[in-house]
Design a protein around this nucleic acid. Structure first.
Length: 577
RNA sequence: GCACCCAUAGCUCAAUUGGAUAGAGCAUCUGACUACGAAUCAGAAGGUUGCAGGUUCGACUCCUGCUGGGUGCACCA
């Protein structure tokens, strides 16, 4: 990587570490966080270092004195204007404005906008979306899909070799019920027009019958056994169910701009389950209890996990362990990330623990999010109060279309629709991505489809305005190239914008390493707010030559970051909205 | 009963993982379209961070105990 594309904070962190080492030669600094971070408050410089206070705690001395010692010893890097000691021992750093301009120039000449190649030669598997076959996707599925996809994009942007795997729920006891129900009361017409809905109807009906009718339950069980033993007819039916479901899911994924490298459902690992259990037994981790084979994790505070049912069948703990073993052998990933809702926390803790015990070296991460609820209650298929994902997408596009029509009445209809699609889908995604997911979410249409304030359309609007400025500039000054002029930061708002622009790479790194797309969304919104203020308060096209070109360049870099940053969240940026 | 999670402005959420005066958006109020797109901007108002203790230079953040809500806890995934 080119040296100038390393963020200023990264360089300053290294500089601080060196200076502290010089001040305190005998002291072990390895455990002290020495990083330089963006200032928490703009009035206290551009960046700050809190290490003096942390170090003072370690040394049991006065933090201000430590900071003072640092300041006396410090030889300022060329791009630093000055440093100041403040408060209990903050080291506030002021950057030279010219250095900021240089940093922007370097970013602009880099196709990756300064993103580091952190993931070189590392494979990360992201397991997300993972819906069940024969059940329509509803609004509860969107979070895993959208968050997982954003992580996918973030890791890829940082150079990781990402494998996106859709671990479909395509195997299990429900298929006995569905096969039986299908034979008895499938509606051929409904199966054509709305296949997954019909499969679900069949399942629900069959399930309810099994609860009341023992004979029915036994027949379903028999169908399941036949399927598991490879019976041709049942196998063909199962394949048909999977195919019908997938084709419908793919239609939704396409609308969402989501794609996977693999669709390896649970069935893919089916023939590895017996071996997995054998391995657990061999390692002495499994024991028989009430006829079932279990891993007792009581000692680690993780209850008991069943790995083979008393009827000899396997359950999802076993499947998940087998999946990890298989993935590790095939891809040697450095990490596997799972994106699911919070209800599965215990399950993941259990099987991560077991994997560790059998010596799986891979880092396993569970990214969980709060359950989606309706204002009245938790929604469930049985209650019949689910909102289907497609209905949500349709509604989003319809509402966006209304807005587009009123604000751009002259546009032809096809373009209006295309924009409404990007804006509507973007709004939905952003709603899920812009908040820390670890709290339960109450679904409201109003919130899901927010179009102003902290929302995707706000960011898209900022982008479209820049695109418009760019085109107007090109039309008015066809013989000029802004890049032939230097970036000069004279207005305070220009400097503030510049500082935020330089922090794009750090935002991406942070979002990925915390597995929180919301960090990226926060950054982009903050950037957009600063840009909007710049836009509203400083003339571009009417400015004198020089400042004019410099501002056009700031606009261009902002546009590039908005476009790329939103792309990392899977959100499109139309040139006109 | 045990475990995990959540509680911040009227509402929806932030707070760089222990830092300086807790910040945004919506809603409310006041201003700004004969400058580049008003899906915008400038400003005002809004807080005992659920409660009570504790740890320390410093707590929304960590510890203990409560209150209220959510979710799990043996053959569904």
């Amino acid at each position: 990587m080119k040296k100038e594309s390393i963020s200023l904070e990264t360089q300053l962190s290294a500089w601080c570490a060196e200076t502290f080492a010089a001040c305190f030669p005998g002291v072990d600094l390895s455990t002290i966080p020495l990083a330089v971070i963006p200032s928490r408050n703009e009035e206290f410089g551009d960046c700050q270092c809190e290490a003096a206070m942390k170090l003072a705690k370690e040394l049991k001395t006065n933090p201000r004195a430590v900071a003072q010692q640092f300041k006396e010893k410090a030889v300022l890097p060329a791009f630093v204007e000055k440093i100041e000691i403040a408060g209990p021992g903050f080291i506030n750093i002021y950057l030279k404005t010219a250095a900021l301009a240089d940093q922007l120039t370097a970013m602009q000449s880099d196709k990756k906008l300064g993103l580091p190649n952190l993931g070189k030669n590392q494979t990360v598997i992201i397991d997300y979306s993972s819906p069940n076959v024969a059940k329509p996707m509803h609004i509860g599925h969107i979070r895993s899909t959208v968050i997982g996809n954003a992580l996918d994009r973030l890791y890829r942007a940082l150079g990781y070799n990402v494998i996106a795997d859709n671990h479909l729920g395509d195997w299990g006891t429900q298929f006995g019920l569905i096969i039986l129900g299908y034979r008895e009361f499938a509606d051929a017409e409904a199966l054509k027009t709305a296949p997954v809905e019909e499969l679900e109807r069949i399942y629900v009906k069959s399930y309810n019958m099994s609860k009341e009718d023992e004979t029915w339950r036994d027949r379903a069980k028999a169908e399941l056994v036949k399927l598991q033993q490879g019976d041709k007819e049942n196998r063909a039916l199962w394949e048909k169910f999977v195919e019908l479901t997938l084709s419908e899911f793919n239609r939704i994924y396409k609308r969402l701009g989501v794609s996977f490298d693999f669709y390896r459902g649970e069935s893919f690992y089916n023939d590895q389950l017996a071996g997995t259990v054998a391995r657990l037994k061999k390692e002495g981790l499994a024991s028989v209890s009430d006829g079932a084979l279990v891993c007792d994790l009581e000692a680690d505070g993780l209850n008991v996990a069943i790995v083979r049912k008393s009827d000899g069948g396997y359950n999802y703990t076993t499947t998940d362990i087998a999946t990890v073993i298989s993935r590790t052998a095939e891809f040697q990933p450095s990490e596997i990330i799972y994106v699911t809702d919070e209800r599965q926390q215990l399950h993941f803790k259990q099987f991560f623990h077991i994997c560790k015990k059998i010596g799986v070296p891979t880092k396993l991460t569970h990214v969980w999010f709060g359950l989606m609820r309706l204002p009245e209650a938790t929604f469930s298929t049985r209650e019949g109060n689910v909102i289907k994902l497609e209905a949500l997408l349709n509604e989003a596009e319809a509402r966006a279309l209304e807005v587009v029509k009123t604000s751009s009445p002259g546009m032809d209809e096809a373009q209006q629709r295309e924009i409404a699609r990007a804006v509507g889908i973007g709004a939905i995604k952003y709603t899920d991505l812009s908040q820390n997911p670890q709290s339960l979410v109450t679904f409201t249409w109003e919130k899901a489809l927010a179009m102003d304030g902290n929302s995707a359309p706000y960011l898209q609007y900022a982008y479209a305005r820049i695109a418009s400025v760019r085109d107007k500039y090109a039309a008015q000054f066809p013989d000029k190239n802004p890049d032939d002029f230097p970036i000069i930061l004279t207005e305070e708002i220009e400097r503030r914008l510049a500082l935020k622009l330089t922090r794009f790479p750090a935002a991406v790194v942070s979002a990925a390493s915390l597995d929180r797309p919301s960090v990226m969304a926060d950054y982009l919104f903050d950037l957009s707010q600063t840009y909007s203020s710049f836009y509203q308060n400083v003339p571009f096209l009417k400015a004198d030559e020089g400042p004019r070109e410099s501002r056009i360049r700031l606009c261009a870099l902002t546009a590039a970051i908005l476009k790329n940053g939103l792309a990392l969240l899977g959100i499109e940026t139309p040139e006109r909205i």
